[in-house]
Each structure stands twice: as C-alpha cells, then as structure tokens.
C-alpha cells in the first residue's frame, strides 16, 4: 500500500475530481510531477510537449495562485495560454454556463481549466465540450490539483503517504480542498482526521472514511501532517463561528496546539492564509515545520503533469477514447 504500482498508461480525458481515481493513477501523476520539479528549478524551464496546443483558464471565481499556477504550467510546457475571468466574460450579460462552454469550445482549445462557485458545474461543462477539462475547483465539491500538490509535497518530505496520520482543520463544510484530500489520502492509505467546530463539519462525513474531532489538540495528537483551511466566509450565510477570535482560540494553529502533533509534523495550508484567524504567524513562518510555500512550488509541477496527462489522450483520439473515469456519466 505504501508504494502503489503506478499506472503508466494513465491518460484521462478529463480530471474532474480525485474520487474514482485509483492509487496507481494518482501515483502516476505524482511521479510525472516529481520530474517537473527539477525542471522548474533549473534555469531553462521550458519543455515543448504542449507546443501548438491552447490552454484556456476559465475562472468564474477569483483565484490568484491556482490560475497563475496553471498559466505557468501551460507556458512551461509550450502551450498558448489564455486567461478568462468572470469579470470580463459574457456571464454578466446573461450567457449560461453551457453557452459559454460551447462558445469557447468552438475556438478549439485543447484544455479548459475551469473554476466555478457551484458544485458540479465543471462536470456539467465537461459534458458539452470536445476538449479536455481540468477542474480548478467547483463549489464545495472537489479541487483535485490541490490534493495532488498536497500529496506531492507530503510524499517528497515523508517519502510516502500510506500510513501517515493527516489532520485537516477548519472549515471542512465549505471546503473542496478537504473533500479532494479526503479521497486522495484515503486512496493512498493515510489515516484522515478532521478538526473543526460542529457547525463547519458537514453531516455524515464520517461515511467518507474520516475521524471527526471537535477538540483540536485531541485531533492533532500524533499527527504527521496538519492541514489548515481558511474560513470561507464568502460561502457562509448566517453564523457558523461567533467571531474570528473565538475561532482562533479553539481552532487556530499556534505553537501550543501544534505541540500535540508529532515533533516532525508538517504544517500545510492551501492558501490564502489568514494570519491570526486560523494560523499563527510564528507557525506559518516556521521554516522547520511549515511547507506552505513548497506547496505552491509543487502546484506548478502537478499541474504540468495533469496537463500532459489530459492532452496525451486528446492528442491520440479525442472523442473516441473511452472515458476512464466513472464520473463521466451524465
């Protein structure tokens, strides 16, 4: 279980989520990404595997790191990259998601990276286009490339994912990062714990194979990895936590709470971080523990691997290729 055999033929049509991917498929993507880390650190960062191909970043929701990361990934592989964000698109003129998708599709892009505020929207869009689609985050559902970059960060630091205790803390209810990570970590054999106030733990999430804690120190006991999530205030209607300071008091990661985890436990955060809300500055900036900036670095490598994986399929026989993922059902 620790080192699953990579699936060397993993060439999905789309990457819409982690759910449904096998450990071999995940390992295949991580192995490929690992190779790009060295390239990204060298002076000559360019490859030409996506030469002549077009990547459109279609973002219906604000994003800095994910969009930039995909843009860099595409450019380093030699693709032409176009960024479209909701503020400048026709969505404000009343165009439906599907019409936007069909319009862009008519311009023959090879990959669409889509972020959307509604769960399931990226999958819906993927059913209407002939190019490959990578989910850049849909509502509170999935954010597969974030989970993959987290996994790559963990694997490079710890050598393996299987058997580790990973504690995810904070706003689980509204987090697509949490859901993708739960799928990935469970598939790779890690033990997943969730920590948060009851109002931010969605109902019956235990059924996804996690242990839930409301006492942060208990949840952190013996943890190898601590993943912090930010409060997604923009998705909250009504009071989920009474105040930011109360949230920090009980669920903010500081040195005291972190002491409950293993001495070599790593601190992760998908960003953007809110210092003093879910994470203390001293912890976020602790170079021995925090791998937050390393996650950003791994993000570019993982996205390069994902772009190659989906265009590999698209390059051979675009539409005829059988859908490998269970998710493709309409």
């Amino acid at each position: 279980m620790n080192t699953p055999a990579p699936d060397t033929h993993f060439a999905p049509r789309h990457i819409l989520g982690i759910e449904g991917l096998s450990s071999g498929e995940i390992t295949c993507l991580l192995d490929a990404a690992d190779g790009f880390v060295a390239l990204n650190r060298s002076r000559q960062k360019k490859s030409d595997s996506l030469q002549g191909l077009t990547l459109i970043n279609l973002f219906f929701e604000d994003s800095t790191r994910t969009r930039t990361s995909f843009e860099l990934a595409g450019k380093r592989l030699g693709a032409d990259v176009i960024n479209m964000s909701v503020a400048t698109s026709s969505i404000h003129k009343g165009e439906s998601l599907i019409d936007t998708a069909m319009t862009l599709n008519a311009m023959h892009p090879d990959v669409l990276v889509v972020r959307h505020p509604h769960s399931g929207a990226v999958q819906l869009l993927s059913q209407k286009v002939t190019c490959a689609v990578i989910n850049g985050g849909d509502g509170s559902h999935e954010h597969p490339t974030q989970a993959l970059l987290d996994a790559l960060t963990i694997r490079r630091r710890k050598g393996t994912i299987g058997g580790l205790v990973v504690t995810i803390c904070g706003d689980i209810a509204h987090s697509r990062v949490a859901r993708s990570n739960i799928h990935l970590l469970n598939t790779m054999g890690a033990r997943v714990r969730l920590v948060g106030p009851p109002t931010l733990i969605p109902p019956m999430i235990e059924r996804m194979g996690v242990e839930v804690f409301h006492d942060m120190k208990k949840g952190l006991e013996g943890a190898d990895i601590v993943m912090m999530l930010r409060l997604q205030l923009e998705r909250m209607h009504g009071t989920f936590v009474p105040s930011l300071r109360e949230n920090f008091h009980f669920y903010g990661l500081d040195a005291d709470k972190l002491a409950a985890a293993k001495p070599d436990a790593l601190v992760m955060h998908p960003g953007p971080i809110n210092r003093g809300v879910e994470i203390d500055t001293s912890v976020a900036d602790d170079i021995d523990r925090s791998v937050i900036t390393e996650q950003v670095e791994m993000g570019v490598a993982v996205r390069m691997a994902c772009l190659e994986a989906v265009t590999g399929t698209a390059a051979t026989t675009p539409a005829a290729k059988p859908k490998r993922k269970k998710k493709a059902r309409s």
């Binding site: 769960s119 399931g120 999935e142 859901r179 969605p202 109902p203 019956m204 059924r207 996804m208």
Partner: peptide, 21 residues
C-alpha cells in the same frame, strides 16, 4: 431549508451541496 439543494446527508456532503434536513 434556505439555500438547500437536496436532502441533507452523506450524499449532499460528498457532492458539496447544501442540504435540507
């Protein structure tokens, strides 16, 4: 039920949709 999209439970949690209890 405000903002709810489907029955609240395991499936709404998995799909990331707000549930109606």
């Amino acid at each position: 039920a405000a903002g709810g999209q489907m029955n609240e439970g395991e499936i709404s949690t998995r799909l990331g949709l707000k549930g109606i209890p």
